[in-house]
Design a protein around this nucleic acid. Structure first.
Length: 490
DNA sequence: AAGTGGAGCAAAACCCGAGA
DNA sequence: TCTCGGGTTTTGCTCCACTT
């Protein structure tokens, strides 16, 4: 951020998200210029419990193909701009490429400029056909509808001079009437665009939007893993489950790391079929947690002396406070908000960590403690390699803690499910005892055939032996009890 | 048969310095 | 402030050997 910018607080960004677009994969994660359209469909229940078949087809640019993840980012940034510029009163949105890229947290290299142009080309060409899947917020019903997004755009090269005021000399995009109307109908939700654009993985971004919508009125939500991957996130169809898991895990991890999710977990339904559960974080971590114990001033300076910082430097620091530090350090940190004691205490912690790494042989050893620490305080000089190591260490510790809580959670859940299973077993054997010998044998034959392995193919048991056998063989018991349920639920 | 781990690939994303 | 060029890293995916 430019230091010369006005010191007044930046107005809060007014990100908005198109709720119809959240529901289906808009951008293909794996770009393929030859693929000109994609269709997705799924069954859902309407509020009355009726099953509806939703379908969604997106057609891309004749040469450039389907939208890519950045196309979706560009669209969201433009929607945000539209809200900021006219509160959805005007379908024309003016922009400057550098500012738009900045908004999306992208760099300003030529690639991004080219990509932005490509995104606009694609947005202009894209057409979406909703079948039973376009929610009309005024009619309050699902419609079938075909819409384009961008009717027209212009890129004006601002190079070397400021954009002139006349609209002719500005870059702009103009939404199509139908798309603009849907924006005005307010089937849009707030989007924390600062957070959204700060996410690294495109899949994490999409997942964030989907979950943010779901979490509106409930703290947890689950999806069928494959359905989520293929029909919401837009991952390649028919990938092996473990591949889907790998990708979805990566995205979910980022959302946990960034404090949006408290946790997520997989539940195996049957072989190759998983549910994934997401739990919303209770509080959004707004800032780094403050240390509870702040060492008092005299203690801090004693520590400095203990670590061989010279008396002269310490005196200077006591007398002049932050003015004892290098100018650029004073500029870098806001000492109206950060006390000098906290700043020094933080540096000492960093120093201790670096020292520890040196002792472990992971880093070059510090030769002169006092000089090093003073340099760390006065010039804020933290070697990059040390920073990396510290970051690594922090991550390892964080992961360890997360793993621990996850394990505890899993143990608790498995205990619970064990209890449930025990109860079910008891109930099952109660019913089982009532069966006649013939039925028991008949069920055994069916279960042998339906069991996932063939190892019981030649099993011969007397009716009175079946119960004991089932009590000992857990997996076979499951097959048997399933067969039992199927037979008696008819 | 389903699941895991790792190597490797192509393309996109990212980074950074230099020039207009 | 915008554009360009290049080199490096990351990402989504496939393939294969191995384990459960």
């Amino acid at each position: 951020m430019n230091k010369n910018q006005k010191s007044t607080e930046q107005p809060k960004r007014q990100g908005k998200d198109d709720m119809n677009l959240v529901e289906f994969p808009f951008a293909s994660i794996r770009p393929d210029n030859d693929k000109k359209f994609a269709t997705f469909s799924r069954e859902e229940k309407d509020p009355n419990g009726n099953t509806i078949q939703k379908e969604w087809t997106i057609e891309g640019h004749i040469k450039l193909g389907l939208p890519i993840p950045s196309t979706e980012d560009t669209l969201l940034a433009i929607i945000e701009l539209c809200k900021e510029q006219s509160n959805f009163k005007s379908k024309t949105v003016y922009f400057n490429r550098a500012e738009l890229l900045n908004r999306m947290n992208y760099g300003k290299s030529q690639r991004y400029y080219k990509r932005l142009e490509k995104d606009l080309q694609i947005l202009k060409a894209v057409s979406i056909e909703y079948k039973n899947s376009f929610w009309h917020n005024q009619q309050k019903q699902l419609l079938s509808r075909g819409v384009g997004i961008v009717q027209e755009y212009q890129i004006y090269n601002e190079k070397g001079r400021k954009a002139e005021q006349a609209p002719l000399f500005k870059s702009f995009i103009m939404f199509t009437d139908s798309y603009f109307e849907s924006l005005q109908d307010q089937y849009i939700k707030n989007l924390d665009s600062e957070f959204y654009f700060s996410l690294t993985f495109h899949i994490a971004k999409k997942l964030y939007r989907i979950l943010d919508k779901r979490f509106y009125n409930q703290p947890s939500f689950f999806f069928d893993l494959r359905e989520l991957a293929e029909n919401f996130l837009g991952l390649t169809q028919n990938q092996a489950t473990k591949e889907i898991k790998k990708t979805v895990t990566k995205a979910s991890e980022e959302l946990v790391r960034r404090g949006f999710l408290e946790r997520y977990d997989y539940r195996k339904i049957k072989t190759g079929k998983y549910q994934i559960w997401f739990y919303k974080a209770k509080k959004k971590p707004l800032q780094l947690p403050k240390e509870k114990t702040v060492t008092s001033i005299p203690d801090i300076f004693k520590i400095l002396l203990d670590k061989n910082v010279s008396q002269r430097c310490v005196n200077n620091l006591i007398k002049n406070k932050e003015k004892a530090l290098a100018d650029f350090v004073i500029e870098k940190y806001d000492f109206t908000k950060l006390s000098i004691e906290d700043y020094v205490s933080e540096r000492i912690k960093i120093f201790d960590l670096i020292k520890e790494l040196g002792a472990e042989g992971k880093m070059k050893k510090i030769e002169n403690d006092g000089a090093y620490l003073w340099n760390l305080i006065c010039n804020d000089e933290i070697p990059e390699s040390y920073q990396r190591q510290i970051e690594e260490k922090r991550q390892i510790e964080e992961n360890r803690k997360r793993e621990q809580t996850k394990r505890q959670q899993e143990e608790l859940e498995s205990k619970k499910s064990e209890e449930v299973e025990l109860q079910q077993r008891e109930e099952f054997f109660k019913e089982f005892d009532k069966l006649s010998d013939d039925i028991k044998l008949e069920l055994l034959e069916i279960a042998k055939k339906e069991h996932q392995t063939k190892k019981y193919e030649k099993l011969k048991l007397e009716p009175q032996e079946i119960k004991e056998f089932l009590e000992e063989r857990r997996t076979f018991y499951f097959t048997f009890s399933r067969v039992f349920k199927e037979k008696f639920s008819q």
